[in-house]
Amino acid sequence: MYDVIIIGAGPAGLTAGIYASRANLKTLLLGSSFNPSLITTTDIIENYPGFPDGISGFELVDKLTEQAQHFGLEIISHDVSSIEKISAEGSDAWEIWADQKNFQAYSLIFSTGAEYAKLDVPGEQALTGKGVSYCATCDGPFYREKDVVVVGGGDTAVQEALFLTKFARKVTLVHRRDRLRATGVLRERAEKNEKIAFVLNSEVEEILGDTVVSGVRLKDVNTPNSAKQLRADGVFIFAGYVPNTSLLTDIVEMDDKGYIITDDQMRTSVAGIFACGDCRQKLLRQVVTACGDGATAAFAAELYIDELKGTSYEGRTIDTK
């Protein structure tokens, strides 16, 4: 029986792991065996405090893992497939199934992050890996001197478009709105970059190609029935995210997009279940906020466990209600 089981080994889950194991809670972290943290798909993180020269997503996750293991965190690479409420010595507890094994804990911390949203247009699925990509660091180097399209207008889209200019001959950024949503510095850099062209007010309607991508068909959002084709060797899609929260459907409260609703102590609508990082409803989904959430979730879980076991110090309970 664990005090805490953390699900998801990204920055949020690993930070929760550091705090929980350092607080001597009996903690297990279950991380996916095949889906790495989203942050490992970017080449350089420039905005994580303390790294003035930036750090690669991989290096950061490796370091977080090392740091957590240093405090004795047990990490198993198993994908969690289901969660069930049980009772243990009169208290509510949770049973988790992962890879046909089961684990039990008094509390759960969800840090399952989000995954790429699909555009849901013809050609996308069939050509995934054959020109359609959701990861510029993975696939960018195959587009040396080629023409690529980047779909999206947020930070990720612009950052990855800039990365792709290292390889591609031309990068065309296609965005639905009339201007980019991306943060000032990134927008400026993109506008100055001679390899980047912008096609605004436009939506990708179809990804073209037989065995590999040959282009995209675009629609001007202001001009109905307008269609134009753009030749391209690759299409990189950064069109938002879908939270990985299906395990908790019908268990905790979520917003209409499936993000878990928590209070500022990372408590969900169910006592003993906490959520942190990209999987919860919040304003800014970044590494630094994921780590902050993770620390808070672990501390809140510690208080919950203390209370459950009747070992709470006076003054340490923080039920603010």
Binding site: S32, S33, F34, P36, D43, T137, C138, P141
Partner: peptide
């Protein structure tokens, strides 16, 4: 695979 590819590293032990 390649050094710079995150998902590749996940696949190596598999």
């Amino acid at each position: 695979w390649a050094q710079w590819c995150g998902p590749c590293r996940m696949l190596t032990p598999v």
